[in-house]
């Protein structure tokens, strides 16, 4: 198991570097010059001399291959470079954003699991009955609601109409814990609307298929308590595919929660990446994509390891 884990980790690292290299070269195919973009914020023309000076300052006048080697060299020493926009190191900027995004994703996942798995189990055990139909119908509605619609409606109702919460934003935990929690809970709930429905559908389907297995009948026949059968025989066997789906969803949220971040003005990693792309801030884009790719791969690795814990057969 250890060698398997190490092998997977090495592959993960190589994958992340390949993704970053791909992004590196793709950026040069996208029209738009970083120096011009940086100096012409707000759609006003920068003087040509200033653009030239900045191009040299940023090292963009060097051959692409030299820039690429520079980038790889930086990677080896753990240096992601400096942002074109403000000269801060890319790593320090990501380090500020990443925990916020991870917190948001963790909270959204926790809510979705807490709602989706029990609901899925309940529906599967009562297939075709009213509860099942009601839950399945609700889940379909939830899945078809775009997150920006849910988010906008939440801001409108809870912030503008009822005045219970601020209209989005972010406050560090240390500064005001209650406000911090409210501000991260709003986008987390918006994400969970669709996410919990996915978890529900997956749980329902896998539990339903496990229920038809012979050993479930055997377990019941030998007189095990129903609660024990559900927890140890049904749920544990059904959770594998759910873990896979949750892992993929979480990975997708790393760079894909941009809409919800916009609606709630939540300063996470996705919005940061979009801004970097708009500004053609190459080091920032590369660094962020690299980190997201790495985390995505890591998440999948964790899911695989979790699989092993859930299902001893995979370990061999």
């Amino acid at each position: 198991m250890l060698s398997y884990t190490i092998r997977r980790c090495v592959v993960a690292l190589l994958l992340a570097v390949s993704v970053a290299s791909l992004v590196f070269f793709a950026l040069y195919l996208v029209p738009g010059d970083p120096a011009t973009m940086l100096l012409s914020v707000g759609g006003v023309e920068p003087p040509a001399a200033a653009v030239q000076a900045l191009t040299e300052e940023l090292g963009l006048d060097r051959p692409v291959l030299v820039q690429y080697l520079d980038f790889l060299g930086g990677l080896v020493t753990g240096n992601l470079g400096q942002s074109f926009a403000n000269g801060d190191t890319v790593w320090s900027m990501i380090a500020v954003r990443l925990p916020r995004t991870l917190e948001l994703i963790a909270l959204a996942t926790a809510i979705s699991l807490a709602v989706g798995v029990p609901a899925g189990l309940a529906a599967a055990l009562r297939q075709g009955r009213t509860v099942d139909r009601l839950f399945s119908f609700t889940a379909s509605v939830q899945m078809s609601l775009p997150v920006f619609v849910v988010g906008t409606a939440m801001v409108y109702i809870f912030a503008q109409r009822l005045g219970w919460v601020p209209a989005g934003g972010y406050v560090p935990l240390a500064q005001d814990p209650a406000r911090h929690l409210v501000l991260v809970l709003m986008p987390a709930l918006a994400i969970s609307v669709g996410f919990s429905a996915i978890v529900f559908r997956m749980s329902r389907a896998t539990v339903a298929s496990v229920l038809t297995k012979d050993w479930v009948r055997t377990a019941r026949a030998k007189g095990l308590a129903e609660g024990r059968v559900r927890r140890w025989h049904i749920l544990r066997n059904a959770l594998g595919p759910v873990a896979t789906v949750v892992g993929l969803e979480m990975g997708g949220l790393l760079g894909g929660s941009v809409l919800v971040e916009y609606v709630f003005n939540y300063p996470g990693l996705s919005g940061f990446l979009v801004t970097a792309i708009e500004n053609r801030d190459y080091p920032q884009i590369r660094g962020t994509v690299l980190v997201i790719a790495f985390l995505f791969i890591l998440l999948n690795l964790l899911v695989d390891l979790l699989y092993m814990l859930l299902d001893p057969r995979v370990r061999d």
Partner: peptide
């Protein structure tokens, strides 16, 4: 900072 213009208005209203 409120990048979304509608949220900027919502923040003022709220």
């Amino acid at each position: 900072a409120y990048r979304d213009e509608n949220l900027r208005v919502a923040a003022l209203e709220a």
